[in-house]
Amino acid sequence: MQLTGKSKAALIIGLLPAFLIYTVFAIYPIIQSFYYSFMEWDGFSEMEFIGLQNFENLFQDPLFWNSVGNNIFVVIASVFGQIPIALFIALLLNRKIKGLKIFRTIGFLPVVLSTVVISLTWSLIYNTKDGMINEILRAVGLDFLAQNWLGDTKWSMVAVCITVIWQFVGLYLIIFLAALQNIPEEVMEAAKMDGASEWVTTWKITIPMIWDTIIVAIILCISGSLRTFDLIYVMTHGGPSHSTDVMALYMFNETFSNLQYGYGSAISVFIFFFSLILIGIVKKVLGQKFI
């Protein structure tokens, strides 16, 4: 599009308010936390410049690496849980079936619910004494399978991840459905005339045609999982024994409960670069065309 001088000015004026707000509320705080990350600061007293000491401590902090490990677990569980399940359901729903709208609404419902409500409900479902899962297992005589889902370090992370997957499947479902409906009818028809089976059509035509959307969904999914906080905060507080601690939760606790604003900022800076690099890699790997 060609811009004349006049409309360029209009463009700048139009963007300016948004740009200013974004600068003040997003870019400036990021720069500020870079600055704080070089300081020893409890939030009240004078700041003291300590160079890279925070980062040195950070890299030697086993609890921090534990939270990084847990976070990677959440990312993997989300990408390999949410995306395939959402895609599968979207493919099923993408045909003329009765009650499509109802299914779509049901699928999307968890996304609209407040995370706190979801967390509390799932905590009840997982409860070891009278939670739904254990009650059912006991009712059918599978007592040995009943676990202390959230209270046992072996299961807590798995239990939390199942909830995370459940919560966001609906979001990607809607994204995929929208993409699927944009595939031109003619292409499908042509495939059918050439005698392609459903299976072949799905793999050779449908998925390649929405591949860009899948990549976007994967990136959204990764960045969302790296920021995950609220659900785990309510469900387990990172416990028991740090088994469900993730980076954002660890940062929150160090900053606000332990009053280490400098150290907390260093963690934020780490999360910032970690996410950036991870998403960069994913884009490189998945960026190549499908097939």
């Binding site: 209270g151 046992d152 370090t153 028991p240 024994s241 740090h242 606790n253 332990n258 280490q260």
Partner: peptide
């Protein structure tokens, strides 16, 4: 101190499940 409180809180929980 806040750091020690955090440590003993988490540590006691770990003790109850045999992690520490």
């Amino acid at each position: 101190t806040p750091e020690l409180t955090d440590m003993i809180n988490n540590g006691l929980q770990s003790i109850t499940i045999g992690e520490k």
